[in-house]
Design a protein around this nucleic acid. Structure first.
Lengths: 252, 252
DNA sequence: TTATGTCTACTGTATATACAGCTTATCATT
DNA sequence: AATGATAAGCTGTATATACAGTAGACATAA
């Protein structure tokens, strides 16, 4: 015996300060990520969503438009809203960890930890917009893809925000995951620079290439979700024969 | 004797199929670019704009929200809408020409045309998703910043879409501008790859560096505004001592 | 002096409504 | 069998309205 439910599903909470359009957006995003909606499936129309979740059409619309801007769906006038291909969801300058990046390229990521220590460094402190004497956590890892060395990655975190993080074993654990799950730190934007340079002795050794070979240097400053406070500075040196950086740009 | 104008300025045209919010957005963008509004100036409030231009508050709002998403302004709840720093307007995944890019970095862009000819090339044809025999326009230029060689840029266009474009002089003219103004071609997305490599003989010569030095290779495929049809393939080799690539990533 | 409240202006969220424009399917007509 | 009209369903644009939340300025009270 099933109970017939009329009206809204009431899965959105109107008693919390999270906007309805945001709750609906996250709910649909979750359904896409868990494959409840598959690529190129048509999502419910704006009117259907508004009826099912008990919001106005304009609110449902806002959720769909935001999802489109984030690359999760594409919309066609007169036809409907459809789930985008996963590859289109990447590429758009989304901030990804090494692990995510390599997985998306169809390889198996790995790491060998070379060094985890507390340091202070004037140059890095400047990038992180803190005092030169501020204690930093330095994590240096050789990054592997399919068990072959791909990059030498040196991360610096502000110790104050994540005390005792130096106790963690970073061989199999994503740094971003630890920040998120253990310290409740959410990331916002990242600024990233790419340039070409020649491999130095250390880089040549750990990457197993000749000294002087061209390598890709990536410098990244990661910010908290306020997009103002730097939390991490990363210096990564990639083997150029095994890695190239990809980014998708939009006109406008 | 001046005529007193009451009510809307009527600078927006309601008789053409361009949406009002779009017209207003472009108008404000133009005022920002021509410095009528300077960085950190407060723009008129949503209500002021709606009164001045004779649209509803929600329409004015849409223009401002879009401008924020494009990085031209930043909005603060309870305070207003402000013009963003130029540097913040870049970086965000916007597709830019060499000319725009260099100007944004505060240098004077230039070009020396090395070659403009009709060719066919199997490898490039594949990137452009056309038949290997398709006629392509090859434009090779040495790109200058402050009169110093910065990059060797080789563009390939599909001749069918822009016949006779090979007659143009590309020394001082942006390729994208010609596509837009002469052929009515609007660009959508671009896919871009970056890698490090060693300079070959030609590159060393035109960039005035030693052969074998590390250089940054950028490959770009540009698409029409349908985001499906490739229109251009560009191969650019940058001097690594004078250029590094910047991109801003968002979490989420 | 230092809080504390109040007022005002602004952005943020949400609803209801209307009509235009596009796409697809259906059905009637030639 | 091809053509054309029509209707239904969808997104896109636009307006009007309401109230919540935030920030700054200013006056007032402890």
């Amino acid at each position: 015996m099933s109970r017939i439910v009329k009206g809204p599903l009431q899965r959105l909470r109107k008693d919390i300060p999270l906007p309805l359009y945001y709750q609906l957006k996250e709910l649909i995003k979750h359904q896409i990520e868990t494959k409840a909606f598959k690529p190129h499936d048509r999502l419910p129309s704006e009117i259907e969503l508004s009826e099912v979740y008990g919001v106005s059409r304009m609110t449902a619309r806002r959720a769909l438009v935001d999802l489109e801007n984030e690359g999760f769906v594409y919309r066609e006038s007169g036809r409907g809203t459809f789930v985008a291909e996963p590859k289109l969801r990447q590429g758009l300058r989304r901030l990804t960890s090494f692990t995510e990046d390599i997985k998306a390229r169809g390889m198996v990521p790995g790491a060998k930890v070379r060094e985890v220590e507390l340091v202070s460094d004037e140059h890095v402190a400047q990038k992180l917009n803190v005092d030169a004497t501020e204690t930093l956590v330095k994590v240096q890892r050789v990054r592997l893809a399919d068990n072959l060395p791909l990059a030498l990655e040196t991360s610096y975190l502000i110790h104050r925000y994540c005390p005792e993080i130096e106790q963690s074993d970073f061989t199999n654990i994503s740094l971003y995951k630890v920040l998120n799950e253990q310290y409740g730190i959410y990331l916002g934007k990242a600024e990233q620079y790419l340039e070409a340079k020649s491999a130095g002795p250390l880089e040549a050794q750990v990457l197993e290439i000749e000294e002087g070979k061209s390598v890709l240097l990536m410098e990244r400053t990661t910010y908290l979700d306020d997009n103002e406070t730097p939390i991490e500075f990363v210096n990564s040196v990639y083997r150029s024969d095994r890695y190239r950086f990809y980014v998708e740009l939009k006109a406008g």
